[in-house]
Each structure stands twice: as C-alpha cells, then as structure tokens.
C-alpha cells in the first residue's frame, strides 16, 4: 500500500489509476477511497472524467494503470474478479437504462434469478419490498415506457439494490429528469444514505451533497483537483478551477 493511503475499511479504492481513450488521458493518477457507510460525491465540468471514473469501478470501462479494488477484490480483466465485483456493486445511470421489454417486477428479478440463481418467488417477494421502499409498489406490472422519468429512475435504484450491493454507484441520476421529478429521486437516495448505504455519486445537486455527502471530490481534466467535506468545499474552495466551476453551477 502506498504511503498516502490511510488505514480503514474502504469499499472502493483507487490507487494511482490511469485511463486513456486512444491518446486522450481521461483519468490521471486517480487515488481515492470510499469508506464503508460513507457517501462520496463527485462533481466537475463536462468531460472531466467523472463518468469514466465511476464506470471503472464495476469494469464497464477498463483502466490501464493502477489498482481498483471493491471490497478488497481487484477489478481486473479476469471474468471471475469482474463477476464478483459486479455482484457487490449496484449502478444507476443517467438514462435509467431499464429493460423496456420487461415489466417493472421482471426488471428487478432478472439479475437475481438468472445470474444469481435465486428462486423466482423469493426474488419477487424481495422485489415487492424494494418497490414499496422506493414508493412504486403499485406499478410493478407496468412496462418502463408507461412510467414517468422519476418513477423509472426509482425502479432503476430498486433494481440495483436487488443484489444487496456493498456500494451503490450513481452517474448523474437526476440529470435527465424534469425539474419537478428531481426531488422524488433525491428523496429515495437520501433515505438510502440514512440507512447507511455506501454510495459514490456523480452529481451537481448542491443541496443533496450538503445533506448527505461525507466528501465532495472535484475533478477537472481527468484529475482530482480538490476533495473536502461539502461545507468546506462550497464555502472555501481552495483552487481557482473549483471557484470557477462553483461560480458557474451556483448561478445556474
């Protein structure tokens, strides 16, 4: 372990991670740890590598240098490690990415039943509980296309929770929602946070970060520029780049 790494129980660890798209250096020696039971928010201008970072956690993108671990398991090219990592991570996308040909209930049970080998009845019972928790128990027989964006995203959160992940990854979960739908999704996420879920969230929702984030990570051009608790980051940003970014976002 490098000297910069503090001791502790980290669900997600990045150690000197580099990633290139062709010649473009998309992640530049990224090092960070998400402690169990904490929430880390990532923000930064468009193209700064936030999605790339979060997608490296569950191997949707492959990093080229450094180490990424989830629950101590290295994320590498081998299928076994990747499967184990994906079992421990739940991911929520900006565009929901629900399966449109399956009902809400089947969207939730697909993974556990076919990949996890869970009996269908047991998976469905758990799915109903989760749908109830995100407030859409009455929509379970509908298809995703019949739901509003906010409802779809709440289904997506429930779907990601089905494997009882060690960490939930959110990539701009409210960015493609109508403004009046944002709060219902944030409320579900905050409830998750209160339940002690470990979360890594790419977001620009200041209020959400202030309320639940333990650490705000600011990225620009593929590198981590600043990392601080929200009250500190929002009131006393240390770098010009962070100040410029906050100036733009706060006055949206």
């Amino acid at each position: 372990m490098g000297p910069t790494r503090p001791a502790g129980d980290f669900v997600v660890e990045f150690e000197g991670v580099d990633k290139w798209y062709g010649a473009h250096h998309a992640l530049r020696s990224v090092t960070l740890g998400v402690a169990r039971g904490e929430r880390v928010a990532i923000c930064g201008p468009s193209g700064s590598g936030k999605s790339t970072l979060i997608r490296c956690v569950n191997g949707l993108e492959r990093h080229q240098q450094g180490t990424i671990r989830v629950d101590g398991i290295p994320v590498d090219g081998t299928g076994l490690g990747l499967a184990a990592v994906r079992r421990r991570t739940g991911m929520v996308f900006q565009n929901f990415n629900l399966f449109p040909h399956l009902t809400v209930l089947d969207n939730l049970t697909l993974g556990p039943v076919y990949s996890g080998g869970e009996p269908a009845a047991a998976a469905e019972a758990r799915a109903r509980l989760l749908l109830d928790r995100v407030g859409i128990a009455d929509q379970q027989a509908k298809f995703p296309g019949q739901l509003s964006g906010g409802q779809q995203q709440r289904v997506a959160i429930a779907r990601a929770l089905m494997r009882e992940p060690s960490v939930m990854l959110f990539d701009e979960p409210t960015s493609s929602l109508d403004p009046e739908r944002v709060q219902e999704v944030l409320a579900v996420m905050e409830e998750l946070a209160r339940g002690g879920m470990t979360m890594l969230v790419v977001t620009h929702e200041m209020g959400f970060m202030r309320r639940v984030a333990d650490l705000v990570v600011f990225m620009d051009q593929g590198e981590i520029v600043e990392a601080a608790p929200p009250e500190l980051f929002f009131t006393q940003p240390r770098t010009d780049r962070a100040r410029a970014f906050l100036g733009q976002v706060m006055h949206l």
Binding site: L60, T89, M91, F93, F99, Y114, R159, A160, R163
Partner: peptide, 16 residues
C-alpha cells in the same frame, strides 16, 4: 449501449 451496460452492471454474463 445503455442496455448492454445495465445488464453488465447487474452481473449478467454474455449469454444471459
């Protein structure tokens, strides 16, 4: 691509 990614993130292998 999001459909492939969501399925991967759920741990579904190629065949599934």
């Amino acid at each position: 691509a999001g459909q492939h990614e969501a399925a991967k993130a759920l741990g579904l292998g190629y065949r599934l």
